[in-house]
């Protein structure tokens, strides 16, 4: 009787060691101990982050379909976490072109499609930023940003094209009849410039908008090709006045 119990105990001990080894192996892969080499996960969705998603066409439906393939559109958004909770209502994507200073590439400052994310009332509460490759054949969903105040009517720009034209024309009458349709732009704002201004007077000084793709402004092209930016602050800006980030 005792003999059988001893050998049964031995069997259980062997089993315990095997199970411990298996558990240790699994856990070590998950928890890196100080000074030890960590095992790397091989399941990362991409080796550099965000994959490029091909666009079948520039049609709104194809742009939205591409956006929905991204990781950001496939996240579980239930619960009370600090997140956008509903991506089911999407507005019409808008093209936002980049104003690039000399020496800055389209890879660094790309053009974008902005997808409005709407609430039940149809206001834009958030926006998905879809960076375009230089050929405009693929997108990366690089961010979702939340507006401080929802924008009306599914828009992403604070002004309409007509309002922007009137704003510019009030200061430059030759812009009353633009020689091409106004279009939405953003430009890379120099953070050092902003910080230096903030340090001096304690206030944000660039209030004209256009510093990020989700907050675009209208570029109005007047006679002789002169271009003006219609700021959200009601002012008109010559492109040479913009505090560009230089890379």
């Amino acid at each position: 009787m005792i003999g059988n119990a001893v050998f049964l105990l031995l069997a259980l001990a062997v089993l315990a060691v095997l199970m411990s080894v298996a558990y240790t192996t699994t856990t070590s892969a998950a928890l890196p101990l100080a000074g030890a080499a960590a095992k790397q996960s091989t399941q990362s969705p991409s080796t550099t982050g965000d994959p490029w998603i091909p666009l079948h066409s520039q049609a709104p439906g194809d742009i939205l379909a591409a956006a929905r393939q991204s990781a950001l559109f496939q996240e579980s958004r239930s619960g009370t976490g600090d997140q956008v909770h509903d991506l089911s209502r999407l507005g019409r994507p808008v093209l936002v072109s980049a104003l690039r200073p000399a020496g800055v590439s389209a890879a660094e400052v790309p053009d974008f499609y902005i997808v409005p994310i709407l609430n039940q009332a149809g206001a834009t509460t958030d926006a998905a930023e879809l960076a375009l490759n230089p050929a405009h054949t693929a997108v990366q969903v690089i961010a979702i940003v939340t507006y401080t105040v929802p924008r009306t009517g599914g828009s992403v720009a604070l002004l309409s094209a007509d309002q922007a034209t009137r704003t510019v024309a009030s200061q430059y009458p030759e812009a009353a009849q633009p020689i091409r349709q106004p279009y939405l732009v953003y430009f890379p704002l120099d953070p050092a410039w902003q910080a230096s201004q903030n340090g001096q007077n304690g206030q944000h000084v660039w209030l004209a908008g256009g510093a990020l793709p989700a907050d675009p402004v209208w570029l109005v092209t007047a006679a002789k090709g002169k271009q003006y930016l219609a700021g959200d602050d009601g002012k008109t800006y010559d492109l040479s006045q913009l505090p560009f980030w230089k890379g």
Binding site: D50, S70, L72, V109, L212, W245
Partner: peptide, 17 residues
């Protein structure tokens, strides 16, 4: 909400630069 590629790659245009 910055994608992990943006978080690691930068060049993220914000209202503050």
């Amino acid at each position: 909400e910055a994608s992990i590629g943006t978080w690691a790659g930068g060049h993220f245009s914000t209202p503050y630069g």
